[in-house]
């Protein structure tokens, strides 16, 4: 499992053009439905990419991802409700809170054998859900917490560009990290923690960093989600969020960062095109995870790579 899936530098040269094309979609098509589907795709791609930083690099599957997402969403939502703080300001404490909790979990996972870390984070998200539901006097529990919109008006236009910007920013930052010294250290820890320690890698520092960065993005995306969707319930801290995050990341190609983009595109489009199968969503996610883990561990990224290599070979033959 030593393969490196990171995008080649060439990909970055394509990125501005790609962004430009995608940015043209709303004014060209003027279709609110299309915009909303694309917003979902960008949001889930961003979620998958941030999930990948722990899953694909230090190799800790964060089954509690939704907990950090919920912390971001509820912090900003509650600040807006009780202190009338705009989400544009509330986003800072929200992200800080999610990242701080992430750092703490990262710290705790040091004491835990690989597998306990996964169980522990899952517990944490479940506990956050129970607390959010139990403290219904404050959070309104399952009645739902209403959040003010980020932009005036009912158009999805501004949200489209905002989440596209977040996604682009996140992919660039995470890829830079993954390519750098830090990403290398993450990989070494992911491969063999004991070996990493023995060659002098500061496991504490890097594990906490991976968790902090990943959960900071989780918190940020939680804030976006809360104010975009409008109403949130304690279920944002449940598998309803974690499972698609996990599936999009692994189907895309774990350890690649950008794999979540094609995977989110494919998965969200399929669920949108065939509304009837929405009820069996989680059955499909379950089967997908089993299949990908056994037969296609490099995910869509692996497939794309293979296809690209084949094309190169045939070009040379010509």
């Amino acid at each position: 499992m030593g393969e490196i899936n990171l995008p080649k530098l060439k990909t970055f040269k394509i990125l501005p053009y790609l962004l430009f094309v995608v940015a043209l979609v709303p004014p060209l098509f003027k279709n609110e439905y299309l915009n909303s589907v694309l917003i979902s795709i960008f949001l889930w791609a961003a979620i998958g990419a941030s999930f990948d930083l722990t899953a694909g690099f230090i190799r800790v599957t964060n089954f509690g991802y939704a907990g950090f997402f919920a912390i971001g969403a509820y912090t900003s939502g509650l600040l807006a409700l009780y202190f009338n703080i705009s989400p544009w300001i509330g986003v800072f404490p929200a992200v800080a809170f999610a990242a701080a909790l992430g750092a703490l979990v990262g710290l705790l996972t040091l004491r835990l054998h690989g597998i306990y870390a996964a169980v522990f984070s899952w517990f944490l998200a479940e506990t956050i859900k129970y607390i959010l539901a139990a403290a219904s006097d404050i959070t309104r529990g399952y009645q739902g917490l209403m959040n003010p919109p980020l932009f005036p008006g009912i158009s999805r236009f501004p949200y489209y560009y905002f989440i596209l910007g977040i996604l682009a920013f996140e992919i660039i930052i995470l890829t830079k990290i993954a390519r750098g010294k830090m990403g290398f250290a993450f990989r070494v820890i992911g491969e063999d923690e004991t070996a990493a320690k023995s060659i002098g890698v500061n496991v504490l520092y890097y594990k906490v960093s991976a968790f902090t960065i990943s959960t900071a993005f989780a918190g940020l995306l939680g804030v976006f989600y809360a104010h975009y969707i409008g109403v949130i319930t304690p279920d944002v801290s449940s598998l309803v969020i974690t499972v698609p995050a996990l599936a999009i990341c692994y189907v895309g190609g774990v350890g690649s960062i950008w794999g979540s983009i094609p995977s989110s595109f494919v998965i969200i489009t399929i669920f949108e095109a065939f509304r009837e199968i929405g009820a069996y969503r989680f059955i499909i996610y379950g089967v997908l995870l089993i299949v990908v883990m056994i037969w296609a561990r490099t995910g869509l990224v692996g497939l794309i790579r293979k296809a690209a290599e084949k094309m190169k070979v045939t070009e040379k033959e010509k």
Binding site: T61, L239, Y250, F282, Y285, G286, L288, L289, I290, M293
Partner: peptide, 9 residues
């Protein structure tokens, strides 16, 4: 992740 997939299924 494999056994988690089985859980979901």
């Amino acid at each position: 992740v494999l056994t988690f997939g089985l859980l979901l299924l």
